[in-house]
Simulated scan of single mutants.
Amino acid sequence: MPLAALGPRICIMGPSNSGKSTLAQAIGQARDLPVVHLDQLHHLPDTDWQPRPVAAFVALHDAAILDERWVIDGNYSRCLPQRLARATGVVLLDVPTLTSLRRYVARCWFDRDRIGALAGNRDSVKWAMLRHIATTTRANRRRYDALAATIDLPVVRLATPRAIAAFYRTAGLTRPRRAAIRAGSPPAGT
């Protein structure tokens, strides 16, 4: 499916550490779409992933989806119905759990300028996150299967790192340089 078929409001969902933020940034650059990283809306900047109050997060989320053009990465099922109601296309990443675990550890140890990071935060390996990735991915995979079968939107499903790389190539996407992303301003309200 061509990237243009996903329209001007694209949701990118998938397991933690599957490459959602990097793909969102690449699509945003290629299609000139504002990029919204839900992790940045859900968590307070300059903290170690401290969540905002629920009402504040929902308000930021709902304001972001009112725009006519965007690419949003993240799951946050609490707000998924209203996000899908505005979306024009969905990309589902479905990488193996071991890939997500490996990417999580690598980003915490080696990736100081990762795309989608919280302002003022340095990621560190946390047991709770390792457990979340190891136990939640399987259940989420079943939910994504059901979601893909029921939504009336164009859906691109990418189930392996190789499939993701092929999507980058066929869509003419370039992996964004982190230094360029750091120089940009964070999304409104963060």
Rank of each mutant, 00 (worst) to 15 (best):
P2V: 05
L3F: 10
A4V: 06
L6P: 11
L6W: 09
P8H: 06
R9P: 10
I12M: 04
P15C: 07
S16T: 12
S16P: 01
L23M: 12
Q29H: 15
D32H: 15
L33D: 14
P34Q: 02
P34K: 03
V35N: 06
V36R: 03
H37N: 11
L38T: 04
D39W: 14
H43K: 12
D48C: 13
P51G: 15
L60T: 12
A63P: 13
A64C: 09
A64Y: 09
I65S: 11
I65L: 14
L66R: 09
W70Y: 03
D73V: 04
G74Q: 00
G74P: 00
N75E: 01
N75M: 02
S77C: 02
R78A: 05
R78V: 03
L80V: 04
P81N: 01
Q82F: 05
L84H: 00
A87F: 01
T88Q: 07
T88W: 05
G89H: 03
L92G: 08
L92M: 10
L93M: 07
D94F: 01
D94E: 04
V95D: 03
V95M: 14
L98Q: 11
T99Q: 09
T99A: 04
S100C: 12
S100A: 13
S100D: 06
S100R: 11
R102P: 06
R102E: 14
Y104P: 05
Y104G: 07
V105L: 00
W109H: 09
F110M: 10
D111P: 03
L118F: 09
N121V: 03
D123M: 03
M129Y: 01
T136R: 13
R138F: 02
A139M: 09
A139S: 04
N140G: 04
R141K: 10
Y144P: 02
A148I: 05
A148Q: 05
A149C: 10
T150Q: 13
D152G: 14
L153K: 07
L153A: 07
V155M: 08
V156Y: 10
T160P: 01
T160R: 05
P161W: 15
P161Q: 14
I164Q: 12
A166R: 13
G172A: 06
R177C: 11
R178D: 12
R178C: 13
A183H: 04
P186W: 00
A188V: 00
A188S: 00
A188L: 00
G189R: 01
